[in-house]
Design a protein around this nucleic acid. Structure first.
Length: 292
DNA sequence: CGTCAGGTGCGAT
DNA sequence: ATCGCACCTGAC
């Protein structure tokens, strides 16, 4: 892997297991958008980053080598050997082999706990375009102005303090629907009650999950997503409608409860459950597996 | 118009 | 423990 800096960008050559489409469209993030030139622009940690892959070269636009090492290396999980993970998963069976090959460029991002908690509360019984719109509205209306990139203005995700200062109605008007009161509650708990969700990642997976489940609007699926996408808990298996479909298509004879599917996944995939879930989810959703 | 979407809370069993 | 139902909202 060769990394070097050019004018306002970092160029990475020969990086394995990194495909922007797979990373940004496997359901783990909501603030990355496809541009006309087939690049993706996102807001992360109050910064605007643009990613473009051409042949085997990846361009990290609007950043520098310092930020690359201090922020993006961790965010994109670049220290992890995904080839090794993929090889282990591929050996399990032919279904997983297909799914892993289909989404071979997936990386599980290390995202901000607070932003992910609220984002996945919004995701409950919701569609991706609506989730993205609600998060964008919250940021545009109540986040900090960051700057412009290609003639578009960008805003950070509102802090717990800012979110707590809003009324339920102001949150609702951003398009969050019945989840507005959950967001209001979570903001109060995190900001006013000084609950440090940034320490949850230090707990073991079961305790971490137990803590998250105490938030109203956080059920089993949302808790698993928050743990997996922002707290480095990889021995968990979020089961949503797509994972249920693909598991029933590949592994299960009958229709099991979501919790039983989760337990089945964790017992089958162990420490790699979270990675397996991502490959299966992306495969199922892109191909419409099991859709009625 | 009804249905449904990357679930969850709630009350009833 | 497990089950069934309502739920903001907008696209079909």
């Amino acid at each position: 892997m060769k990394i070097y800096e050019e004018k306002n960008r970092v160029v990475v050559e020969n990086m394995k297991d990194f495909e922007p489409k797979h990373i940004f469209e496997c359901g783990q993030c909501f603030r990355w958008n496809l541009e006309d030139d087939n690049s993706y622009t996102g807001v992360v940690f109050g910064k605007i980053l643009n990613i473009k892959k051409e042949d085997d070269i990846i361009y990290f636009n609007n950043t520098n080598l310092n930020e690359f090492h201090n922020i993006w290396y961790k965010y994109f999980d670049l220290e992890r050997d995904y080839t090794n993970i993929k090889n282990k998963l591929k050996k399990i069976d032919n279904y997983l082999e297909k799914a892993v090959e289909f989404g071979g460029g997936i990386r599980i991002l290390n995202q901000d706990e607070w932003e992910i908690l609220i984002s996945f509360i919004i995701s409950a019984n919701n569609r991706i375009p609506m989730i993205k719109k609600a998060i964008e509205n919250l940021s545009k209306n109540y986040g900090e102005y960051i700057g412009e990139f290609r003639d578009k203005k960008y805003y950070s995700f509102p802090s717990p303090k800012k979110m707590n200062s809003l009324s339920e109605d102001e949150i609702r008007k951003c398009g969050t629907g019945f989840r507005a009161k959950y967001i209001k509650d979570a903001s109060f708990i995190v900001y006013r009650q000084n609950c440090d969700i940034y320490k949850y990642k230090n707990l073991d997976t079961d305790m971490c999950r137990k803590e998250l489940l105490q938030f109203c609007g956080v059920g089993p699926k949302v808790a698993d997503c928050v743990m997996l996408f922002s707290m480095q808990k990889y021995d968990t298996f979020p089961v949503d409608v797509w994972v249920k479909r693909v598991m029933e298509e590949f592994y299960l004879e009958e229709s099991l409860s979501l919790n039983k599917i989760r337990n089945y996944g964790i017992s089958k995939f162990g420490k790699l459950s979270g990675f397996a879930q991502q490959y299966l989810f992306y495969y199922a959703r892109e191909l419409g597996i099991g859709k009625k």
